[in-house]
Simulated assay, not measured.
Amino acid sequence: MINILTSKTIFHKEYAKKVLTPYIQPESKICVIAFSHFESNDMLNSYYKTYEKPLGIWYLHIVEPLLTYGILEDQIEFVLYKKDSKEDALKKIQEANILFLPGGAPDKFMERLKEYELLDALKNFDGIIIGPSAGTMIQFNWFHISKDRDYKKYSINSGIGYLNDFGVEVHYNRRKQQKKSIRRVSHYHDRPVYVIEETGLMILKDGKIIFQKDAYKYYEKGKKVYKKNKIYA
């Protein structure tokens, strides 16, 4: 299994394409599980508009970077909440060799995956997992959410479980609340905490880090070990 971890959708950037081209091929079949939206009074209507072809904001945000790899639009399937049935969602996942887990609300993402009874299928998936932001967080067996403009308090949440040897803080920009959360989660469990900056990228093969850029170990066993690693493959 290949796990690709980022804070943002930076896959079209030249530095990312240099290392991701072996994994994202022109013949790839991609399934986007679009369950990460935040809730609002007009949630479903606004949500569907953002994923609407051909000009929905989130549709373009995900599809345009992938097209730079020579992939055609009809090779990218979307699973839409409350539009796709459980059976349709499962079929799209099983036919793909790449799963794309979008950014957004990681806790709501997990709730909807459980509602659709997709966790077993996801855990058994043996292809490539791409996940910016929330899509990176839920790849772990558990993850923390730092207090920010979207979340009023820190929390620990269950994830899918592809990765468990370390945790991450996405969108790391040295905010006070982020540092506080990293310290807190490091005292909660002794596994290392890595930070992924906005330009950051990590690639793991069978759970082992094989590439990292602007992503580095920050805390381990309750102690700061901030060592900014060089790019390596």
Rank of each mutant, 00 (worst) to 15 (best):
S46M: 10
V225F: 01
Y194V: 03
N229Q: 12
A215V: 04
L163H: 03
G207V: 09
S158H: 09
A215G: 04
I145R: 05
F11Q: 09
Y59N: 03
A34T: 08
S40I: 03
Y47M: 09
S158W: 01
K13I: 06
K108T: 13
L204Q: 03
D148F: 04
N141G: 11
N173F: 12
S158G: 12
M137Y: 03
A105G: 10
A215I: 05
G161I: 02
T68H: 04
S181I: 01
A121V: 04
E87F: 06
H189L: 12
M1G: 10
I33M: 03
L119C: 11
Y151S: 08
S7T: 07
L72F: 12
T68V: 11
K53P: 13
G127P: 11
H144T: 11
D88Q: 15
I203L: 12
F125R: 00
A121L: 04
R183P: 01
S28E: 11
K147L: 12
T6K: 00
E52I: 06
W142E: 15
I93F: 10
N164P: 02
Q178T: 01
I203M: 07
N41M: 12
K224P: 13
D120R: 06
K205N: 15
D206W: 01
I71S: 00
V19T: 07
I203G: 04
F78L: 01
V63P: 08
R112L: 13
L118P: 13
L72I: 08
Y48F: 14
E27K: 11
D148R: 00
P106K: 06
N141I: 06
T6M: 03
T199M: 11
N173E: 12
R149V: 14
I98P: 12
V185A: 10
N3T: 13
E117G: 03
S28A: 15
K18H: 09
Q177D: 15
F140H: 06
H12S: 15
S181N: 14
D84I: 04
I2Y: 10
Y116K: 08
Y154T: 09
Q139R: 07
K114V: 12
K223V: 14
Q75M: 05
E14S: 15
K17D: 09
I138E: 07
L20G: 05
V19H: 05
I4D: 07
I203T: 00
E77R: 03
F211M: 01
E14W: 06
T50H: 07
H144M: 13
I210R: 05
L66M: 02
K205C: 10
L204F: 09
H189M: 13
Y154R: 07
K224C: 14
L67A: 10
D88K: 13
D74C: 09
Y216R: 02
R175W: 14
L163Y: 00
K18A: 14
P102C: 10
Q25N: 13
A34K: 03
N157I: 09
E73T: 13
E27R: 07
N3H: 08
F211Q: 00
S186T: 04
F35Q: 06
I145C: 05
G222W: 03
F166V: 00
N157P: 07
N164M: 04
S46R: 12
K217L: 02
K223Q: 14
L204Y: 05
W58S: 13
N41G: 15
F35K: 02
Y81N: 04
E39N: 12
Y194F: 15
